[in-house]
Amino acid sequence: MILNNNEVIELNRFDRVINRKGTDSAKWDYTKNIFGVDDVLPMWVADMDFPAPDEVIDALHARVDHGIFGYTMPGNETEKSIQRWLKKRHDWEIADNIITYTPGIVTALSIAIQAYTESDDKIVVQPPVYYPFFDMPKKHNREVLFNKLHLNKDNRYDIDFEDLEEKLADQKTKMFILCNPHNPSGRVWSKEELTKIGQLCIKHDVLIVSDDIHSDLLLFGNRYTPIASISEVIANQTITCIAPSKTFNLAGLQASAVLIGNDSLKRKFNSVLQLHGLTTINTLGAEAMKAAYTHGEIWLDELICYFEESVLFIENYLKEHLPSVKVIRPEASYLVWLDVRDLEIRDDELKNLLLNKGKLALHLGSTFGENGSGFLRMNFACSRESLKEGLVRLVKALN
């Protein structure tokens, strides 16, 4: 709190600036390793500069104070916390015993590729998209088919369903990886779009792996539909991946949940997990997951309001200072997709300007696929003060 003319003004909890340097933060301490420079403002990787909810921190303190950190299995209360969360936030009622735990969603993706596909099988992804979607299949010697998304006149991405069906119809296509909500654009797919995807995958017997990690971070009244909630038939052919990591800034605790309603698919998934010795998750990760899903709702609602204000701030600032850059308004998440194609700057020069002139570290759009070239992804999960500084640096670099 601060005093102003004898009045007490409550600062927004998300306006606090917390120094993260010296904590081995990938975002703050390793820019030299990743970008070749260390004097930049990092707004690239998807984690927040906010502390987790107090209830989560209290739960972790209590577990640490207990002092014993033997082998731990996520228990019934953890499962119930996930079920209650999905029902209350997304009106999705999931059955008992469909949850498997992994250290992260990229890990879950790798396990799914090994469990359900063979070498030289084909996997469909929708670029521009989170790059492990195509990197991980290639590492497993799977061929990647790109169903490119198209930016429409309203600055929203659309799915080319004719092209999607053509790629799903390939006899060697065994898996479709969905990003819902979409990263990097923040697009929340509609129930109608998801139903069409599900029907095509059923028609061509293609398994759906859906990364729904940003599904809790819904902005401006948008509604998220889990594709597995649409029908029993679609659910029977879907692997859904969720986690509290983006929602509550818990990525370093490495705990995610994989929802598999099909018993046969779940057994195959768990078999590969056991093959790699992944039989449980981090003790503190499980504790944080349970506390976040049980007590984190009020904190999250406040966070979403803050994010919406941040998006409007970005739009207004760039409209005034750099109108040639178009903001693709996110419908979910704390990542904003910036269209800088009108500047006609090559990606290598764009990178140089950002790092050396603007002293700003962002993800180039080409990281997310060739149709991401000419875009930038900026993480705005920081204080408004830090966000403004990032925008000042962006304008300095590109103007």
Rank of each mutant, 00 (worst) to 15 (best):
N6G: 06
E10F: 07
R13C: 13
D15L: 12
R16P: 09
V17R: 15
N19R: 12
S25W: 01
K27R: 15
Y30P: 01
I34V: 13
I34E: 12
D38Q: 14
D39V: 06
W44P: 00
F50R: 05
F50D: 02
P53H: 04
I57Y: 08
D58A: 08
M73N: 00
K87D: 04
K87I: 02
D91R: 03
W92F: 06
I94T: 05
A95H: 06
I98W: 02
Y101T: 02
G104R: 02
G104S: 09
I105M: 04
T107N: 11
T107Y: 11
T107R: 07
L109G: 01
I113K: 00
P127A: 12
V129P: 00
P132R: 00
H140M: 08
N147I: 09
L149C: 10
H150D: 07
D154Q: 13
N155A: 05
N155S: 07
F161E: 05
E166R: 13
E166G: 14
K167S: 10
A169S: 15
K172T: 13
L178A: 04
P181K: 01
H182R: 02
N183A: 03
W189H: 02
E193L: 10
T195N: 15
K196W: 13
L200P: 06
K203Q: 12
L207S: 07
S210L: 12
D211F: 04
D211L: 09
D212E: 07
D212K: 00
G221A: 07
Y224Q: 12
P226E: 03
I227D: 01
I230C: 08
S231F: 11
T238L: 09
T238Y: 10
I239M: 09
C241F: 05
T247I: 01
L250Y: 00
A251P: 00
A251E: 04
A255W: 00
V258Q: 08
N262E: 01
N262F: 02
L265N: 00
K268D: 07
F269D: 02
N270W: 07
V272R: 13
Q274W: 03
L275F: 15
H276R: 09
T280G: 01
T280I: 02
E287H: 03
Y293D: 09
T294S: 09
E297L: 08
C305I: 10
Y306L: 14
F307I: 13
E315F: 10
K326N: 08
K326T: 06
S333I: 09
D342Y: 13
L343W: 04
E344Q: 03
E344L: 02
E349K: 06
K351C: 15
L353Q: 13
L353W: 14
N356L: 10
N356P: 11
A361L: 15
L364T: 04
L364W: 05
L364Q: 09
G365E: 12
F368R: 01
S373N: 05
R377C: 15
F380K: 11
A381H: 11
S383Y: 14
S383E: 11
L387S: 09
L387R: 10
K388H: 10
G390E: 15
L391R: 10
K396T: 13
